[in-house]
Design a protein around this nucleic acid. Structure first.
Lengths: 201, 201
DNA sequence: AGGCAACTTCACAGATCAGTGTACCAAGGA
DNA sequence: TCCTTGGTACACTGATCTGTGAAGTTGCCT
């Protein structure tokens, strides 16, 4: 039994691994409140007792679900960032490069946005994970824009964040074809516009 | 008793009105699955029997909630469209003019996006309302862009939709200041860019 | 006077919810 | 050999969930 009931994602027992995988799938497909712990345990081939021994509570499992999802997404971005090197523009646009891949498995919307709508409780630990994820992305835009020489990055960073999040929403609800590519192109235009208009001032 | 159990928003009895108002508030604040019909009835000062007599089921009430929200939002846009006249640019940007007002009451995100994440059931009538709302907005951008002389409006329409939806998400999760204004400015830039680059081609 | 619409009261059904207690078992390391 | 870890089996609690049935009340319209 782990010392803390909040599971460490790096050292999951085989049962815990299966529970988290099953829960991730069901939470994403059906919503967090719509899925019961009995269902998760049954579909994981595990008893409810094991679930509670590993994750402490349903809220603990929800938080682990969000943390693992966050980690996977960030590792995708960081891999792209590694390829991008020191060039500022590719660094700024890295999240938009990853977006088509991410959207492939996000046909039911962004797991974070969906969860945020369900977790009304202001002090639910899962909310922090979500806010942190979006804040991290906003920080990434702000930092990389500054590195590119944009002196007032704030409004542009917010615009890029909006484009990024909106593309996921637009794609999942209206099935708009090429939403990721369109968002990528718009992001590039806005950044280039900011660079040139700043240079010619 | 209305002939159809799916309520007509224009002819609600006093009790039904109170039920819908209470349900709208609770659904939005806490999430659809997190609120029970007992709570809604109690807080409306009405019995559960009345709720079921007026709306048929919880799903019926959810659908009425989404339809009334959709109607109010659309009327805001159409009012702005009336002020805009025949000028193409203000017509395109009308949704972004309304956005700051809409965001004032959307501190917990977009009710449609939130509901879409909770309504996993593919044939839930509420899903149609949500898809229709976003599709309507996409259509508005496409149509008004065409009227402005943009020959290939599709990618730009998707970009504007993404900006619009993303601004709501960014504002509600990261509390990004001026998200609506930033999205408005970005939308204007993208449209103007499309108009000039097309003109000089 | 009659009828209908809106609504109340209240008990009840059947399912599902998160979470717990107790006892047991198998494998691996000290 | 003993202890720990990871798990099983299963019954159970108490709350909450959506939804129904039957009978009664109030007030307006004709």
């Amino acid at each position: 039994m782990p010392a803390t009931p909040t599971a460490d994602l790096d050292s999951l027992t085989p049962g815990a691994r299966r529970i988290l995988d099953t829960a991730s799938r069901l939470f994403y497909e059906q919503g967090i409140h719509a899925v019961g712990v009995d269902t998760i345990a049954a579909e994981s081939g595990v008893t409810k007792r094991t679930l509670y021994d590993r994750f402490g509570s349903k809220d603990g499992l929800v938080t682990a679900y969000l943390r693992s999802r966050d980690r996977r997404w960030r590792s995708m971005i960081e891999a792209r960032l590694g390829e991008a090197g020191a060039d500022p523009l590719p660094r700024i646009l890295a999240p938009f490069d990853v977006l088509p891949l991410w959207l492939d498995e996000c046909t039911r919307g962004c797991s974070f946005i969906n969860a945020f709508g369900e977790l009304h409780d202001g002090d639910h630990p899962g909310r922090d994970v979500i806010v942190e994820e979006k804040t991290w992305l906003l920080d990434h835009f702000r930092t990389s824009l500054t590195q590119a020489g944009i002196v007032e990055p704030e409004p542009l960073a917010v615009q890029l964040l909006s484009l990024h999040e909106g593309a996921i929403v637009a794609y999942s609800i209206t099935s708009a074809a090429g939403a990721a590519e369109a968002a990528h192109a718009a992001a590039r235009s806005l950044v280039e516009l900011a660079l040139t208009s700043q240079g010619t001032r």
